[in-house]
Design a binder for these strands. Structure first.
Lengths: 325, 325
DNA sequence: TTGTACGCGTTATCAC
DNA sequence: GTGATAACGCGTACAA
């Protein structure tokens, strides 16, 4: 692959001149500029970004660490992050932690060694201390890990309240809430609090079921739903912490002939696109995924540029009523 | 951030020595090795991969260009690619082309400038010539672009045959096939041939509907289905080119009271995980997504290492019968 | 308007 | 066993 020297030699100028036309800096005569451009594409020259990065001490790469892109919520988030990163001239390095602390740690170190501009953390299996040691700009999604480290999350508590109130308003008498593993220190856990508080306030019987820490374990979802329907036949309303789990709840009901929404009302969380095209379409609490992605990239950039930024970025949620309630 | 010089100075040795312990090369006394290691984590030293890459002329980065990760098929593919890349000590750069030729071209050039180890092309909006010019190892998914460039695809023709035969066997009298835009030069187009040939062979009436070139345009899917059901009420079997489109077909039927599978049989393609947890679960032609991802990474590595490799990697498909047939 | 020389952080080569 | 030094490809003072 041709280097800047090759171009310079071929064009009969110095490397400085080539560099100048490349970066459009300083004064150069129209003649040399043209000649340089010509030899550049004659040689099919592509400037070596690695050398540039080394010099500038910036890679223009953003690391995105999430449990797994194959989960609809994270795939949509990744899509948005990529979109806004591209708009800002950045590249996205995709890291699936699988919620494995070793892999997450490994990825963090890899990103540091590669001098990424910043890290968007959507996976949180490590202790807070491990993150603060890294100096590079960081943004967390759905977890607070320090006084000055910006985090983005939807208004989880309010989401829990909205969902629960809807179920109660629709006449549910006994509620179940299926959430992620509460051992993980996530802001999403507030959904459970919102659920509990609201049910208590209305004097409605309720229960909460945690999933394991595995990523997106569909068999587990099916099993949990089945056990719930089996052991608590009087439950007539479910608030699931994701649309996928809600979909499994629907499936479990259909399987045993429980009619949705007449005999069982179900509500999810996230509003991934699947929630809309499922049959029946799932009532859900919408997170503003595009805004989360946009903000994540912006917060990295702001830290990089030394601009002021908000630490607490709690975004509003919206209840989307569809066919399962 | 500390450099190798800082470590050397602090430890009272030369940079060469530090480099040696870092890479475990040559002979070094146990004493110095220990001392170097100590100062390394005292300074929280992380070797600069960018400098390494510059020297080695290898970045250990694989570029993955796909239409959009938010599409379930590509999100699952991306997940697998990341999995196997990680196993091979590689990183994955995520590039969504949005099926926009300008963005795809832009990403290709970016990847070249960043001297990636190889490119996995899952988006194909450009002419063949534009790909062959890049020297770096490349693997295409679902498109053949040259005699020596390896491609991976499922056995699309056979998938089309299997799906169509099933519909016919189940008693369908008039079939509709919804495929992607046939302007795109994709091997997936063979599914349509398999469909047509099989229907012809059995003397079954059939029609084919193309979608636009937009990525994952859900409103379009809904519209196409509605028009189909509206204008061709006698169609009683649909072969969709993706599970998502199949899901929209189910939704459209439910909406107008057409019972699935009694009055309308529907079959998708891919077998993304959603196909299993949808209600009803979707009958589909399974692509071996994990194997595609594994192979893609391996083919990059083989080209890099100068090992022999297969050009035609057509993988077997499997018909998965579920509730929509 | 253009060229020379140095440094970015590493590793490989050769010398001691 | 260990240390100087020259690359890798580029950008930028500084000089001309």
């Amino acid at each position: 692959m041709a280097t800047i020297h090759d171009v310079a030699q071929q064009a009969g100028v110095s490397v400085t001149t080539v560099s100048r036309v490349l970066n459009n800096r300083g004064y150069i005569s129209e003649a040399t500029r043209k000649k340089v451009f010509e030899t550049m594409d004659a040689l099919n020259y592509q400037p070596n970004e690695i050398a540039r990065s080394l010099l500038r001490k910036q890679s223009n790469i953003i690391g995105l660490i999430i449990p797994n892109v194959s989960h609809p919520f994270f795939s949509e988030l990744a899509s948005q992050v990529e979109y806004y990163a591209y708009e800002n001239g950045c590249k996205v390095l995709l890291c699936n932690s699988q919620l494995d602390p070793a892999k997450e740690r490994d990825y963090i170190e890899m990103l540091k060694r590669n001098r990424v501009d910043g890290i968007i953390m959507g996976s949180h299996t490590l202790e807070v201390e491990e993150y603060v040691s890294l100096r590079s700009p960081i943004v967390t999604i759905d977890r607070r890990i320090g006084e000055k480290i910006p985090f983005i999350s939807s208004d989880n508590y309010r989401g829990g309240v909205l969902a629960t109130e809807l179920l109660i308003r629709k006449g549910c008498r006994k509620l179940a809430h299926i959430c992620g593993n509460l051992e993980l220190d996530l802001l999403a856990n507030s959904r459970s609090e919102g659920f509990r508080d609201t049910a208590d306030k209305h004097g409605i019987e309720h229960m909460t079921i945690q999933t394991d820490m595995n990523v997106f374990d569909q068999e587990q979802y099916a099993r949990i739903i089945q056990e719930l329907l089996d052991q608590h036949p009087d439950v007539d309303g479910i608030f699931a912490t994701s649309d996928i789990i809600a979909a499994f709840a629907v499936k479990g009901c259909v399987k045993i002939g429980r009619r949705v929404p007449d005999e069982m009302r179900i509500i999810g969380y996230d509003d991934v696109s699947a929630a809309a095209w499922l049959t029946p379409a799932i009532t859900t609490v919408q997170q503003p995924i595009a805004e989360i992605g946009r903000l994540a990239v912006e917060l990295i950039r702001r830290q990089l540029d030394g601009e002021p930024y908000e630490v607490d970025n709690t975004l509003p949620v919206e209840l989307i009523e569809r066919a399962t309630t």
